[in-house]
């Protein structure tokens, strides 16, 4: 008998909620629809926006409330566990970035703050303004101090991003390790590697040096900085990852930027899809959050595509694999 903790109620409930995820069929309908209005109608029928009909003004709100509901559903199902936080922490750090940057540049960043966080935005703002970081995690407090220091030295906004991203992964890994669930830990490590691969691809294509890459490298993944540095010095973009688990994915770098970004998301989705075959343990809960995140991303791609009159084929190329 396995010693893993089992959650029959939570998983069964998630399986039911999975019925509300959009299917390939709906995606096809969405893509083939003639106008944005038609897209909004299909989304309404699929349950987006609740009672209200959605239109160009409030669709963002409908998307974020869909995401917020997924977070809160999962949190509610496992109130004593902290592992859903691995998904929320990135939003906390996004807000921290906004706060630090708007403080430095004296531009109001209010509209860039996002929901779905572990720490209430109000509390975070207050902590930030009063410099009393009691309600933040240790890594957050450190990251704030460090980003000011680094910014004073370099005057570059990018270092703030890097400091925050590194701290975010530290916090995520901490939560993952504390949860003792290998799936969560592996997810964060994979996510970390993929983040690095994406930055690598971008920087290499911009013909910048490996020093630039070092500035954005995040720690915590399985692929070391050395491997990336070696890949930088090698010929071509995608060749340096034969020794890692990401060789097939890296080869996609040759197919262009959009194709690679899509492949990265699909790679993570393939990782999450393993959860489909787990019936009692915690994996489906995490996969559900990821599935909703991907769904919202895909819907956003379609809506923006339709609003800007982009060709159906072009939108199709960018669609992410769905969970169901």
């Amino acid at each position: 008998m396995g010693r893993e903790k089992i959650y029959p109620y939570a998983v069964a409930r998630i399986r039911m909620l999975e019925n509300s995820l959009l299917t390939e069929k709906t995606y096809t309908q969405l893509i083939e629809s003639k106008s944005a209005a038609e897209v909004f109608k299909i989304l309404s029928e699929a349950g987006y926006g609740g009672e209200n009909s959605i239109d160009i003004k409030n669709y963002e709100k409908a998307l974020s409330s869909r995401l917020a509901k997924a977070y809160s559903d999962v949190k509610e199902l496992v109130p004593k566990e902290h592992f859903p936080d691995v998904f929320l922490l990135k939003n906390d750090y996004q807000n921290l970035k906004v706060l630090v940057k708007s403080d430095i540049s004296s531009v109001d960043g209010q509209s860039y703050l996002v929901g779905g966080t572990t720490i209430d935005i109000k509390d975070m703002k207050e902590a930030f303004e009063t410099k009393n970081y009691g309600c933040l995690t240790e890594n957050m407090a450190q990251a704030i101090t460090e980003s000011y220091e680094q910014y004073a030295k370099t005057q570059s906004g990018q270092v703030i991003d890097n400091v925050m991203d590194n701290a975010a992964f530290k916090d995520m890994l901490k939560v993952a390790k504390e949860s003792g669930i290998r799936f969560v830990e592996n997810y964060i490590k994979t996510l970390c590697d993929i983040t690095n691969l994406k930055s690598y691809n971008r920087i290499k294509n911009m013909k910048k040096t490996s020093n630039e890459f070092e500035n954005v490298f995040v720690h915590g993944g399985t692929v070391s900085l050395d491997t990336f540095k070696k890949a930088f010095n090698a010929e071509g973009t995608s060749g340096g990852f034969k020794e890692t688990a990401y060789n097939d994915l890296a080869l996609k770098m040759d197919e262009g930027f959009t194709a690679f970004e899509k492949s990265c998301d699909d790679y993570l989705m393939a990782f999450m899809r393993d959860a489909k075959y787990k019936s009692l343990t915690v994996e489906p809960l995490l996969a559900f959050i990821y599935a909703v995140e991907t769904e919202v991303k895909t819907v956003r791609i379609i809506v923006n595509g339709k609003l800007n009159g982009i060709d159906t084929e072009v939108i199709k190329e960018r669609l992410r694999d769905a969970y169901v």
């Binding site: 998983v11 069964a12 409930r13």
Partner: peptide
């Protein structure tokens, strides 16, 4: 008990 928890999860939605 295990099956019952799962059953409650399903019935809570439908």
């Amino acid at each position: 008990g295990i099956a019952g928890e799962a059953a409650a999860g399903v019935v809570s939605e439908d």
